[in-house]
């Protein structure tokens, strides 16, 4: 998967630093798990193991294996290997940012409006289509989704001010 990033002239974060970051985040997750299990009780009660018994040991195993993974990652001194090039990461971020805005917009604007905006943004910025095509797809797709989910399958999706205004 990462054959293309072997070239040493290109710049980007090293594989090693990202790996260390991921491992530490997992360890953090394990600590949260341990805290939560302690809250729920990790001993044995009359009805058998208490609610936190299994999660506690599971989190402990995650913590231990994260430790081992961390050591392995640190030992990788030769690691000049890139995680990805900056230009590649820019591509990734150009999806992550609009998508993140999108998921937070869903509760506010409703599924249909925010979906239309997302599609429009993608098509315009990444695909550079002309506005006519962009608008057509960005309006038709949410409408189809609406008919499909809301009308045919009676699955209500989150709605926002526009739907309220239209009385849907």
């Amino acid at each position: 998967m990462s054959e293309s990033s072997h070239s040493s002239r290109r710049a980007g974060p090293s594989h090693r630093s990202v790996e260390i970051g991921v491992t530490l985040s997992i360890a953090l997750l394990a600590l949260i798990g341990i805290a939560g299990s302690l809250q729920a009780g990790i001993g044995w009660a009359a009805e058998g193991p208490r609610a936190g018994f299994f999660p506690f040991y599971i989190s402990l195993i995650i913590l231990i294996s994260s430790g081992i993974n961390l050591v392995n990652a640190m030992r990788d001194f030769s690691g000049r290997e890139l995680f990805a090039e900056w230009s590649q990461l820019r591509q990734v971020v150009s999806v992550v940012i609009p998508a993140t805005i999108y998921v937070f917009a869903v509760p506010v604007l409703g599924m249909y409006v925010s979906s239309g905006l997302l599609i429009a943004a993608f098509m315009k910025w990444l695909g550079r289509y002309n506005w006519l095509v962009v608008l057509a797809v960005a309006i038709v797709v949410p409408v189809i989704i609406f008919i499909f989910f809301e009308r045919w399958f009676l699955v209500p999706l989150p709605k926002g001010p526009l739907e309220d205004w239209l009385g849907l």
Binding site: A99, Y102, V106, M111, I119, G127, V141
Partner: peptide, 16 residues
Amino acid sequence: SIIGPIILVMCAIGAY
């Protein structure tokens, strides 16, 4: 650039 956001939307609906 067309199918990508549509997949994203379908994923969001699925998750919801």
